[in-house]
Design a protein around this nucleic acid. Structure first.
Lengths: 189, 189
DNA sequence: TGACAAAGTGAACAAATGTTTACTATAATC
DNA sequence: GATTATAGTAAACATTTGTTCACTTTGTCA
């Protein structure tokens, strides 16, 4: 019932990317009085799904978040209420939206670390990377996604695949780092 | 300049999960007249970043979206304007929020298909799955994440790991499907 | 059954909303 | 240098906003 209305609200947000106003909620929820909406919203505010700021409503992280359930343990019901936290994907994955972009992976050079053809990686643009970072780089004018290897004093820099069938790549002229991989995403089906 | 203001707007949305009102934008952008805001917003509406519905503002997918760049090709600048599309992660990954939850993977039984310990998988709750689906299942009262194997007539059902060191799992009494994996997410670092 | 809280109605209200119109300053273009 | 578009100011406006108050209906449970 109440959760039914909350789903209606979620659907509205998914469609319009904003919360409805009180009068829009009138028809959404089938109320006749704005006061009914007022009381309903205040309950959700108390429960932490919605926040008020400057007399305007905004959803909290809890509003969007999916339950994150814990480790699978043999014989244990894992969906128990007590060990669940919440996670919002966009916030979780992208810390720096202004400097991030997505890259669709092609090739099998990183399968050893679980990055497959067709996967999407989140790249954060930066020119510096440390040993072991997965970098989007330009090596001798060729673009590639590889593991950066270098020692402490920045000598002996090269790129490494995570697939035994590829050799290491030593730059002949130059090696420019354009960004590093912050996350990997794979949609199944 | 204009892009600078757009970033201010994005930051506001990231913080409050809603667009600011015109009077809030006054101080945000440093304008003295609401008409300046009005004109600015209308430009963004024309450019497709913002929509108006019921005289209220909402961000479009383009507002959030990160550029998705194409395949890496040797020697080619991949960030070219022409082959870029946009993607919003939440929308892309989660089709059915009401029936989805996240599960933190433990164990190495699926490394063969690139699902590692610590990865987060998006599970869509359903009781039926088809051959080859990665399922969250209860086999003889033990919870597990495995690949479902079955033939066309629903005989010979068992669970399979994607790691040669594990055998196949044939249910002694029962096998209950609780959901299937729709996406895999890995944060790096 | 009666008492009491929860849920909804209806009307009223100040404050804030997005929009419009008229005007000015700044920058760009021929 | 005159012209014209662009960017911003200022004030006024009808609508809509979220909130409040008083009241009624519905459901719960002792």
């Amino acid at each position: 019932m109440a959760i039914d209305r909350f789903n209606i609200l979620k659907k509205f947000f998914k469609k319009h990317r904003r919360l409805p106003s009180y009068s829009e909620m009138l028809s959404l929820f089938g109320f006749a009085s704005k006061n009914a909406v007022f009381k309903l919203i205040n309950r959700w505010v108390d429960e932490g799904f919605i926040k008020k700021y400057n007399k305007k409503l905004s959803p909290t992280p809890k509003f969007f978040a999916l339950p994150l359930v814990g480790i699978i343990k043999a014989g244990f019901p894992i969906l128990a209420e007590e060990n669940k936290s919440y996670l919002t994907l966009d916030d979780y994955l992208i810390e720096n939206p202004a400097f991030s972009f997505l890259l669709k992976v092609n090739g099998d050079s990183l399968i050893g670390i679980g990055i497959f053809e067709g996967d999407i990686v989140i790249i954060e643009q930066k020119k510096e990377a440390k040993n072991g970072d997965i970098v989007l780089a330009q090596i001798d004018n060729e673009w590639t996604l590889k593991i950066l290897k270098k020692d402490r004093i920045n000598r002996n820099i090269y790129l490494q695949a995570a697939n035994p069938k590829y050799p290491n790549f030593f730059p002949q002229q130059e090696l420019n780092i354009h960004g590093i991989v912050k996350a990997v995403i794979r949609k199944i089906n």
